[in-house]
């Protein structure tokens, strides 16, 4: 019963929106608003398996690669910057500068420096997605509880053990919040990175449809993007629930008490 209710909550609004769209688009005469029959046709003819393998999977692969590199880079640099005050003072103005530069404007430069392959596209994703993780990690490390830190000192937990058992878990709630922000930035940059000097990819395909006025196909591509976003968010939530089970449990206890 409870599961049925939860399920209704999850699918309720999408179902309503879908029905509304079918009713509304059925009498559409606008060229830019295809009817739902046109859309479903376009969707099934466009997103065939061969298109998935040539355009969607490579894009998603770059997206995942970009996210993984961002997470590793963000956490490692964040741990260092958060742990050493002098490094923080040294890096802060520089980081603010690079953070303020939109990665998109660097694409032409990257094309010249790195080329137009996967490396460049992944670099663009990382350049945008790394910041929320990095800055949140720095904050997480800095907001370490003093008593917990003292306790670890008195039990002589230092070096790698300190990072593994104390700093990383204690910063994990903030790191996770950073990763969550980074996921949506990464998806946007995945599309944008394929707008220049590309011949394949999800972003490239959508732009091509737009330029050739294949409107139903363009819409179907946007739906695919949205679905990727939903899947990413679901995976993230599952991982987050698992990694931060202690954190949510503790919060619940505090709120209950």
């Amino acid at each position: 019963m409870r599961y049925a209710k939860n399920f209704l909550y999850i699918v309720g609004l999408p179902a309503l929106l879908l029905i509304g769209w079918v009713l509304w688009s059925a009498q559409s005469t606008s060229f830019f608003v295809p009817t739902w029959e046109q859309m479903t046709n376009a969707f099934s003819t466009t997103w065939t398996w061969s298109r998935m393998t040539t355009d969607v999977f490579p894009s998603v692969g770059r997206l995942i690669a970009g996210i993984i590199v961002s997470i590793i880079l963000g956490i490692v640099v964040g741990l260092l910057v958060g742990s050493f005050r002098w490094l923080r003072q040294l890096m802060e103005p520089t980081m603010e500068f690079f953070r303020a530069v939109p990665p998109v404007v660097l694409i032409p430069v990257f094309m010249l420096l790195i080329g137009i392959g996967d490396d460049m596209k992944i670099a663009v994703i990382v350049l945008g997605a790394v910041w929320p993780i990095l800055l949140n990690t720095v904050e997480g490390v800095r907001s370490m509880d003093e008593v917990l830190s003292d306790t670890s000192h008195t039990y002589r937990i230092s070096g790698v053990a300190r990072i593994r058992y104390l700093i990383l878990p204690s910063a994990m709630p903030q790191i996770m919040a950073g990763i969550r922000q980074s996921l949506s930035i990464a998806l946007i940059l995945m599309v944008i990175s394929e707008m220049f000097a590309s011949s394949a990819g999800l972003g490239y395909t959508i732009i091509q449809f737009q330029r050739s006025f294949a409107i139903p196909e363009m819409w179907s591509g946007i739906v695919v993007l949205g679905l990727i976003g939903v899947i990413m968010s679901f995976i993230f939530q599952i991982v987050e629930r698992k990694v931060l089970a202690w954190y949510h449990g503790q919060r619940e206890m505090e709120n209950a008490g």
Binding site: D150, T151, T154, Y155, Y165, L166, P169, M172, W246, Y247
Partner: peptide, 15 residues
């Protein structure tokens, strides 16, 4: 070994 007053903050909540 040291036992602190703030037990809630001296134990690792993730363990």
């Amino acid at each position: 070994a040291v036992v602190f007053q703030e037990y809630g903050r001296s134990l690792y909540p993730w363990m």
